[in-house]
Amino acid sequence: MTRDPGYNFAYLDESTKRMIRRAILKGVAIPGHQVPFGAREMPLPYGWGTGGIQVTAAVIGPADVLKVIDQGADDTTNAVSIRAFFRRVAGVATTERTAEATVIQTRHRIPERALTENQILVYQVPMPEPLFRLEARIAETKRMHALADYGLMHVKLYEDIARHGHIATSYNYPVMVNGRYLMSPSPIPAFDNPKMDRMPALQLFGAGREKRIYAVPPYTSVRSLDFEDHPFRPIRAPHACTLCGARDSYLDEVLTDDRGGRIFVCSDTDHCAERQASREAAE
């Protein structure tokens, strides 16, 4: 694939890339800490992955193979257009196969297949501050992070238990990184939280509108907040995938008609397609 010569490699200018790269390095050195950066205006609106795209653009090179997923799917508008963007401005190869990718940009899912040391996972983050619903003042949340004062989040989880009998947070479930920083895992389902813990791949997080970058280095402890008598439980729909039969993957509920018909299918389209192909091969 040849790239469009009208743009610098990977769209951003070099001084912007250096600024983002320095922020990423400090993020890696302080796992879970949000590093401010000068997010640029990108050729797509906020909420479509401007933070993730800028991180990917600062990281990606001509030898990389890029995969982009949106809620686990490779074939949604956001994923397709971000892949097309990087094919055009960086000339990189793209793939839908998790195993073949070296850089995976994701919106709100972690692939089912275990990631390796040779991969980098880039999350699109709408709101990097895990405490923002509890404390709106950034000056206050900065101080709470400085003091590792996270009692407020425990009170919130406790109130969940008092009201509902269990912790009623099914996505964007707060985590402690390396025992120091409270971090938003971005709105991935709580089902995916355990995959972040001691993951061999480097995890980078970019929030474009909020202008923050943070990171989890490989093999770093990521613990979902919980209580001794209410341990964290990853939740999934109690069904098997209609297409591939998986009982261990995260499922989407799909309405099939207007008479109450519904099926459950894997949210990770590559994982599902791979399982269907291997099942067909076996038959």
Binding site: N8, F9, A10, V28, A29, A58, I60, G61, P217
Partner: peptide, 19 residues
Amino acid sequence: DPVLDAQAGFRAVLEAMSR
């Protein structure tokens, strides 16, 4: 090559810093 060498250099530093 100021663009691609800087990218390769950054990836080496990133790899070093994350491992």
